[in-house]
Design a protein around this nucleic acid. Structure first.
Lengths: 350, 350
DNA sequence: TTGAAAGCGATACCAC
DNA sequence: GTGGTATCGCTTTCAA
């Protein structure tokens, strides 16, 4: 006897649809996956059954039958800075974990601040071997076009950390950097012990995330903390050594410097300088919780750190690439990357 | 021809094990699932093949074959406070999402601060119908014992928000509340505009999370900010109306009050009072980002909010209960709940 | 244009 | 103690 009496409110399956629609399993599958070669009358019947039963596909079973494998690629800048190292680390970690879940993760490193390398990487991605790519890089016209080309080939492309809005990437995984800059300014304003000058250290004019932070920082400083004077920023190019060398001049020029906002990478240079030349009363706010910045926070060299969870960034990128590739819905609250504020007291244990 | 030549480095399956070990599928399964009735010699053979091939079970396939369904239960205090409402909301949200992924989620509400109701609920949980329970409640000897009994029956029990360490619960999902209290103190110390008195509003002496926060707060205040004097705390029992009524006396007693740390629930009462009786220069730090506290932050009634992500709490609890029920490994970095600090500038959009 | 039947990887019932 | 085999929900040849 057939399990006809499955009216029991349990989950309907493809078999139920086939029975109700009076067609075969194969036909149900054709309709379900929009495959050609089905009369529209039949399509109607099947769709009616689907709606009637409230059918929802069991993705796990589908992937099993299909032998579905997700091949994802991360394109990261080839810098030694700890934030990128942390991202890379998390990709590797997920890679070994997801190997047993039909997912492969690869990472390629391209020269930093070099749009052409990214373009080249993107153009080399083979749609038949790669389902999705996560890109952390500058937004230039050439990158934008390469992203568009990749997407046209059917590859899912997401922007990581720094957005590439003009490229029509599938998703952006990262924080609102304008808000991050505003947050830094708010903390600077409330923490600064006196009025005086404030220095901003930026990274590159090419980096969208850096520009946005700067913008947000300036807005809040001028609006809410007029007693603090933001002086011309220095461009550290994420280079610790360069930053360390630039600082003596800055302090010489502004004896009343009371705050520094390190909005990009290169923190080790700043920390080195400040450790060698202590400036008590100086309020320092930097980005990204890393082994080095963690120590600086513990030693009162930094007063606060604005951060984003690298593990979350990577896991979120993976989930979004898979969901997009499968045209599945997204849980936006889970994917929203928060702007973390860390003080000495609330750092997570390493 | 058989797919003998699967030496291609691809994932080994139960079939590969059976072939290599020279036994049947059924026997492989017996060994894999530690079922009785297999000679130790045979067990050896199979285990050897498993190790040799580096086999890892495909959970998706296993759950499909098994018809595995996860039935999980959340026990939450029956209060109208927004934090609990948010938790409840996320449980419901996940419930409808996971319904299509072999998972059912239920919530029961028990009277707040009432250990006996929790004990009753726990004792009534049927191990044959429920795989795991997440409990948010006070740590009392009776609750501790009920948790132990539930676990003895084979039910996974996790503590949510407030830990129940003495119960030997399977996991705790929540923040380090001592550190949260320390964080609040650090912010209070840096934000307070002058020296003076600081008030702490606690919830219940039964609530472990409240006690821990208080402990952390006091420690940092006395150690780092001696210019601020923490006065005897008031116990608000998470009751907005009660809190509102207690405040006039407090302000009368301490004209130099310069800070309030609202360490538990009941914020609406505090906000109401402060809106009716503005105290410019007063630094207020509260817990949990909710619709109400969000507005208070926006209106400068609150200076900062210490929070924990309710969506993350719920998703994490679910993942942990499932993983524990299946004896699967856990990604601790993903499950760590962060102590969030929110200023007006970095609140996530609602 | 449609259907029958063989899997995907793992489990479980029923024999021997 | 072991092995054969149907089954889970879905996909995919191969025929008809």
């Amino acid at each position: 006897m057939n399990k006809q009496d499955a009216k029991t409110g349990i989950k309907p399956t493809v078999n139920d649809i086939a029975r109700v629609a009076g067609v075969s399993l194969a036909t149900v599958d054709r309709v379900l996956n929009a495959r050609p070669g089905v009369r529209s009358v039949t399509i109607e019947k099947v769709n009616k059954a689907i709606a009637e039963l409230g059918y929802v596909r069991d993705t796990a079973a589908a992937n099993l039958a299909r032998g579905r494998v997700y091949n994802l690629l991360f394109i990261l800048p080839d810098t030694a800075n700890e934030f990128v190292v942390a991202l890379d680390h998390h990709v590797t970690e997920q890679a070994i974990k997801l190997r047993h879940q039909r997912t492969t993760l690869d990472t390629v490193r391209v020269p930093p601040f070099d749009p052409q390398s990214i373009v080249q990487m993107l153009d080399n991605v083979d749609a038949s071997r790669t389902d999705g790519v996560a890109v952390f890089g500058p937004e230039t016209p050439s990158v934008r076009d390469a992203v568009k080309r990749a997407r046209a080939r059917g590859i899912v492309v997401v922007a990581l950390v720094a957005d590439l809005p003009s490229s029509e990437r599938d998703h952006f995984i990262g924080v609102d950097n304008v808000a991050a800059g505003r947050t830094a300014a708010h903390l600077m304003g409330r923490f600064a012990r006196q009025s005086g000058r404030v220095l901003v250290i930026t990274g590159s004019r090419l980096a969208r995330d850096h520009l946005e932070r700067r913008k947000g920082f300036d807005a809040v400083m001028s609006e809410h903390f007029p007693e603090l004077d933001v002086v011309a920023s220095i461009e550290g190019r994420d280079d610790p050594e360069l930053i360390r060398k630039m600082l003596p001049d800055v302090f010489a020029s502004y004896p009343d410097l009371c705050g520094i906002y390190s909005s990009a990478a290169g923190n080790p240079g700043l920390i080195q300088y400040l450790s060698d030349n202590p400036h008590p009363g100086l309020t320092v706010i930097a980005h990204e919780l890393t082994p080095t910045s963690r120590i600086a926070l513990n030693n009162d060299v930094f007063d606060a750190i604005i951060s984003q969870d690298t593990g979350h960034l990577v896991r979120s990128a993976i989930r979004l690439m898979k969901a997009t590739a499968d045209r599945q819905p997204i849980d936006h609250t889970q994917e929203r990357i928060r702007i973390d504020i860390y003080l000495r007291e609330n750092m997570p244990t390493p």
